[in-house]
Amino acid sequence: TEKEKEVKRLAKERGLSPDQVRELAQRAGFSPDQAKQIADEFA
């Protein structure tokens, strides 16, 4: 999704850790499970 792409782009730009990616995703409105899946891509 657009929102997911945006979260991943920000995460890459900022060099976020997987935990930070998960927090960012949840703040963007993703469920905890979705946020974990997104964060796992950065693990």
Rank of each mutant, 00 (worst) to 15 (best):
T1C: 14
T1A: 13
T1M: 13
E2Y: 10
E2K: 09
E2M: 13
E2Q: 10
E2T: 10
K3P: 08
K3C: 07
K3A: 13
K3F: 07
E4A: 15
K5E: 13
K5R: 14
K5I: 12
K5F: 10
K5A: 15
K5D: 14
E6W: 15
V7F: 10
V7M: 06
V7L: 15
V7K: 01
V7A: 02
V7W: 05
V7D: 02
K8E: 03
K8T: 04
K8P: 00
K8R: 11
K8V: 09
K8I: 13
K8Y: 08
K8D: 02
R9L: 07
R9P: 00
R9T: 05
R9E: 07
R9F: 04
L10N: 04
L10G: 03
L10D: 05
A11L: 02
A11G: 13
A11S: 05
K12E: 07
K12P: 01
K12V: 09
E13G: 04
E13D: 08
E13S: 06
E13I: 14
E13F: 05
E13Y: 06
E13A: 11
E13Q: 08
E13M: 10
R14C: 14
R14D: 05
R14F: 15
R14T: 07
R14H: 15
G15H: 11
G15D: 09
G15I: 03
G15F: 05
G15N: 13
G15C: 08
L16M: 09
L16G: 03
L16E: 01
S17D: 10
P18D: 05
P18R: 12
D19Q: 13
D19N: 10
D19F: 08
D19W: 11
Q20P: 00
Q20T: 03
Q20K: 06
Q20Y: 03
Q20F: 04
Q20C: 04
V21M: 04
V21C: 14
V21T: 06
R22H: 07
R22A: 13
R22L: 14
R22W: 12
R22V: 14
R22K: 11
R22Q: 12
R22T: 07
R22G: 05
E23V: 11
E23W: 08
E23I: 12
E23H: 10
E23L: 12
L24V: 04
L24Q: 03
L24N: 00
L24E: 05
L24C: 06
L24T: 02
A25D: 00
A25H: 00
A25Y: 01
A25M: 04
A25N: 00
A25R: 00
Q26C: 11
Q26H: 07
Q26I: 15
Q26K: 07
Q26R: 12
Q26D: 04
R27Q: 15
R27Y: 10
R27T: 11
R27C: 14
R27M: 14
R27D: 12
A28R: 09
A28T: 07
A28W: 15
G29D: 01
G29H: 01
G29A: 01
G29Q: 01
G29C: 01
F30W: 03
F30L: 08
F30R: 00
F30Q: 01
F30P: 00
F30E: 00
S31Q: 06
S31A: 08
S31C: 03
S31E: 05
P32L: 13
P32T: 07
P32A: 13
P32W: 11
P32D: 10
D33S: 13
D33I: 10
D33H: 11
D33R: 09
Q34I: 10
Q34K: 15
Q34Y: 11
A35N: 01
A35Y: 01
A35M: 02
A35I: 04
A35S: 06
K36G: 08
K36N: 12
K36L: 12
K36F: 07
K36V: 07
K36T: 13
K36I: 12
Q37C: 07
Q37I: 12
Q37F: 07
Q37T: 10
I38G: 02
I38C: 00
I38A: 01
I38R: 01
A39K: 02
A39D: 01
A39I: 03
D40N: 10
D40G: 05
D40K: 11
D40R: 13
D40Q: 11
D40L: 14
D40F: 12
D40V: 09
E41G: 06
E41T: 09
F42G: 02
F42S: 04
F42N: 03
F42Y: 15
F42E: 03
F42H: 05
A43K: 10
A43Y: 09
A43T: 08
A43R: 12
A43V: 12
A43S: 10
A43N: 08
